[in-house]
Amino acid sequence: MKPNFLIESLTSCSGCISTMISLDIFPQFLDKVNLVRCSFMRDENNISENDIALIEGCVSEEKQIDILKNIRSKSKRVIALGTCAAFGGMLALSTVKEAEPISNYIEVDGIIPGCPPPSKLLGNCIIRLLENKEIILPEKNVCADCEFRTDNIESKFMKRINKLMPREYNLDIENKDKRCFLERGILCLGPITRDGCESKCIKLNLPCDGCMGPIKNDFTSNAINFLSTVNLAKGLRKYKGIFYRYSKPKTKR
């Protein structure tokens, strides 16, 4: 008996689903499952009983809450696919739109974070889902496999952080600056971001953007906890572009 899968897009860019479609294992996946709903690939549109619901996108409209609750009531497991569904996503930077993770409304059985989720991680997660097992995510932060990591705390955290990107555009792989970004005064969100992306940005000599989301707490509080201990330039202190990236805390009464 093939497991029933449901794939639902809420407010999103469809990047997660497009990543999923281009996975190596996707043809086998289609063969092994019975897709009950997926607006990208299927005509039928009913939310019916299913084993696993993958939900991409954040909740930004009231209407979506009913859809979510409906899906929850008919799904054995609900998995948040991508950073939007798991934490709120880029839309959290908006001042007029809400961007809430689905877990604010329904119980979630697992998340596959990333904007988009790294192919390797997503592939592994889907295989585990097909085997009806729990998703396993890395529990460390990006620093864990960062090739620039330094254990010299003094030099790492004492520098004034005033840049969002490296200014010295040295693309020479041989001669590139191999110091930790923080040591170079560049804001790198690696410490507060979940590992699992194989630190792709850092390997390309660009600082971590935090797209994998936090491991514990929420992104904003982690960012505040982290950046209050380092020397952050005044201009960046009020810059919402850092603190609300990928998620916004709930502070409304």
């Binding site: 529990e139 460390k140 620093c143 990591r149 955290f157 690696g190 590992d195 380092v230």
Partner: peptide
């Protein structure tokens, strides 16, 4: 230990 990525923030604080 299995959760530590050695970022060093704790050492700093």
């Amino acid at each position: 230990e299995e959760n530590c990525g050695l970022c060093g923030l704790c050492i700093l604080s």
